[in-house]
Amino acid sequence: MMIKCSRCNNKAEYVLVDYRHEIVDEGEVFCGHHAFDENREKCPCCYDYWIEVYDGDTKCDVKLLPTYPQGTLDSEGCCSEHP
């Protein structure tokens, strides 16, 4: 299953999550080009931390990398898994 970016028709590679990797904003997803627009942030340690995306009660076969809303990461720029 291919999920498309919320901003264009490219393949989604990132999903918007909070500090604890909980999906936010109804699972907004982005391609690599749009993942860090609007001041979204990247944890330097999450280069291979995959988030499983679900469709309702059914698990989709999709894993995406995390992107974070501005101000979500700790003072060192890391998520809860990498403080």
Rank of each mutant, 00 (worst) to 15 (best):
W50N: 01
Y54I: 11
D57C: 06
T67L: 07
Y47V: 13
K63S: 13
E28P: 00
P66L: 06
L16N: 01
D37R: 08
D37Y: 14
A35K: 00
H34Y: 15
K42S: 15
E41M: 11
L16D: 01
K63W: 11
V17G: 02
D55P: 00
A35Q: 00
I51N: 01
Y49F: 11
K42I: 15
Y14M: 06
C45A: 15
G32L: 06
C45S: 14
F36N: 02
R40G: 01
A35S: 01
D61L: 13
C31W: 09
V24M: 03
G32K: 10
K63R: 09
Y14P: 05
D55I: 08
C60R: 06
D48Q: 14
P44W: 13
D55M: 09
Q70K: 12
G56V: 13
F36P: 01
Y54P: 00
V29L: 04
V15W: 02
T58H: 07
E52W: 03
V29F: 02
L65Q: 00
Q70V: 10
Y54F: 14
L64P: 03
Y47T: 11
Y49I: 09
K59P: 03
P66N: 06
V17M: 00
E41Q: 15
V53I: 15
D55C: 12
N39T: 02
F36K: 01
K59N: 04
Y68Q: 05
Y14I: 06
C46N: 02
I23W: 08
P69N: 13
L16S: 05
E38T: 06
P44L: 14
V53W: 04
H21S: 05
D55Y: 11
H21W: 13
G56E: 09
E26Q: 12
P69D: 13
Q70M: 09
W50T: 02
Y54D: 09
Q70D: 11
P66Y: 08
C43P: 06
D57R: 10
C60V: 09
C60P: 00
W50V: 02
Q70G: 05
G56K: 08
G56N: 12
R20V: 08
E22A: 15
T67A: 14
V53Q: 01
N39I: 02
F30I: 02
E13W: 09
E28H: 09
C31G: 04
G27W: 04
V24E: 05
W50K: 06
R20A: 14
C43R: 03
Q70L: 11
K59W: 04
L64E: 05
L64M: 07
T58K: 11
H33A: 07
D25Q: 04
R40C: 02
K42F: 15
L64F: 13
G32W: 03
E28M: 15
D57E: 12
V24N: 00
G32H: 04
H34S: 09
E26N: 14
I23E: 03
E52H: 08
D57Q: 05
P44C: 10
V15K: 00
N39H: 08
L64G: 05
P66F: 09
E22D: 14
H21T: 01
E13H: 12
E26L: 12
R20N: 15
T58F: 11
Y14S: 03
K63L: 14
T58D: 06
Y47R: 08
D48C: 13
E26S: 12
E26W: 07
V62W: 03
H33L: 10
F36S: 03
I23P: 05
P66E: 03
V62C: 04
H33Q: 06
E38L: 14
E41H: 04
C46R: 03
A35I: 00
D57N: 12
E13F: 13
H33I: 12
V17L: 01
